[in-house]
Design a protein around this nucleic acid. Structure first.
Length: 394
RNA sequence: GGACGGGUGGGUGAGUGGUUAAUACCACCAGACUGUAAAUCUGGCGCCCGGAAGGGCUACGGGGGUUCGAAUCCCUCCCCGUCCA
């Protein structure tokens, strides 16, 4: 059962440069940091179940308030005992407020002074999200860590837009802080400020002054370059209190996780490992492999030899290739298990390296082997994706 | 034996005189995916040269013909399906 929240939220065990290793305390248990949260938007990490999550080393998952409000509805969730009970996950849960959907569902929402008005992507019905209502909804969901309503803008937003969003975010978060009463739930603050250093500084200062249990960096991985993202992460992290957990929202790829941990980030969430797993992209120490690709057709060895995940210990790359080619559902589960295990093992290894004081060499070794996708290609494809979705990006 | 219908790129299948190296889907090849409207999206996909633009060659069952020009019209042969005897 939920226990009363007591400070400190984060116990720091070791540092290595700016990198930190610690333990996050929540009402549903402690989690070693740096940590990664698989994303269970609608109360399910797509394609896997709680035992699978435990097996890959997941200790905490993320849910989404917007999606859970629309379906199944937070009143029902509360009636059924909350999200933990509903999805049979007894570990910690963090819920995002729905603020990100104000960004990702740009064409289905209207920003108003007191919140975001959504037109449901399911049936078009209206849903008004205010700072108070998102806190209330997250109480009904019963998450251990809850996020305030914030306003996230695209990476190429102009200064004026970013500044207005920042001001609105501070105001909304202040109201969330006022509305937050449950002691067994940790309310985090979210720093915005786009790609403007002084606005990041201003936002961090305003949010920190509101005194949250932890601090998140929002508004990144929204279309900017890697160097912009790393720069903003480094700057923002340096402005946050050392004794509170730092959470970089929506990140990330293996190389991003390593770089961000190096800058003192403790917590992450990202759909990338699970989403690309379903699309046939699997992580390895050398980079991504496309399991659909012809070379795997007859590869009678693990996807990544030496990997300790269930998929690699049990099946051949040829078999998983076959499952994807045949559109067999088992392929999604096996691929998701592999990618999550890869990411969670990466987190475990980073923690060990920090504790051992060898993080910097770990970081260098990682980058020497891991080859991420080409940045230029990523940008091109991103624009094509946006236009295919009917949202002329930028 | 007769009457219809039909044979198009790896597959299904559009196209009935030029704008067709040939719609679309599938398969195949490659790439992308970062607080999830994602089991999605984007390219490529006859052969040769080129980074590309572009150029050359061969193509819509076989052969012949009409035409400036044919996958499209005519003749003939082959093959397949349905029905009648």
């Amino acid at each position: 059962m939920a226990r009363t929240y007591t400070r400190p939220v984060l116990r720091l065990d070791a540092t290595s440069g700016a990198a930190r290793a610690g333990v996050l305390h929540t009402a549903h248990g402690d989690v070693p940091t740096p940590l990664f949260m698989p994303v269970a938007t609608q109360g399910s990490v797509k394609a896997v179940d709680p035992p699978d999550l435990r097996a890959v080393g997941a200790n905490i998952v993320l849910g989404n308030t917007y999606h859970l409000c629309l379906r199944p509805g937070v009143d029902l969730l509360e009636e059924l005992g909350g999200l933990h009970t509903f999805m049979r996950w007894d570990g910690p849960i963090l819920t995002d407020s729905g603020g990100f959907q104000g960004f990702s569902l740009e064409h289905l929402r209207k920003i108003e002074d007191d919140g975001i008005l959504f037109k449901s992507h399911i049936d078009g019905s209206p849903y008004k999200f205010t700072p108070e209502s998102t806190v209330r909804a997250q109480e009904q969901i019963g998450a251990d860590i809850i996020m305030p309503l914030d306003m996230c803008v695209p990476a190429d937003a102009d200064r004026d837009t970013v500044e207005k969003a920042l001001e609105r975010t501070t105001e909304w978060e202040s109201r969330c802080r006022q509305a937050h009463v449950r002691e067994d739930q940790l309310l985090f603050g979210i720093v915005q400020g786009g790609m403007f250093e002084d606005l990041r500084e201003r936002s961090a200062s305003e949010i920190v002054s509101l005194d949250f249990a932890g601090y998140a960096i929002g508004g990144l991985s929204v279309g900017e370059t890697k160097s912009e993202m790393y720069g903003m992460t480094k700057l923002t992290a340096s402005l946050l209190p050392a004794d509170a957990p730092r959470y970089l929202m929506g990140v990330g790829s293996p190389e991003d996780l390593v770089e961000s941990v190096a800058q003192g980030i403790d917590m992450f969430d990202c759909v990338l490992p699970t989403r690309i797993a379903r699309n046939g992209a699997l992580f390895s120490r050398e980079g991504r492999i496309n399991i659909y690709a012809a070379p795997h057709r007859a590869r009678d060895e693990a996807i990544e030899p030496g990997c300790d995940c269930y998929t690699c210990e049990t099946f051949s790359a040829a078999y998983v290739h076959h499952l994807f080619k045949s559109k067999e559902l088992l392929g999604f589960r096996l691929a998701t298990i592999h990618n999550l295990r890869f990411i969670l093992r990466l987190m475990e290894e980073m923690r060990e390296a920090i504790v051992a004081g060898t993080f910097e060499s770990y970081r260098q070794d990682f980058h020497a082997r891991f080859k991420p996708p080409d940045q230029r290609v990523r940008r091109e494809q991103r624009l094509k994706w946006l236009s295919a979705q009917g949202r002329p990006g930028a």
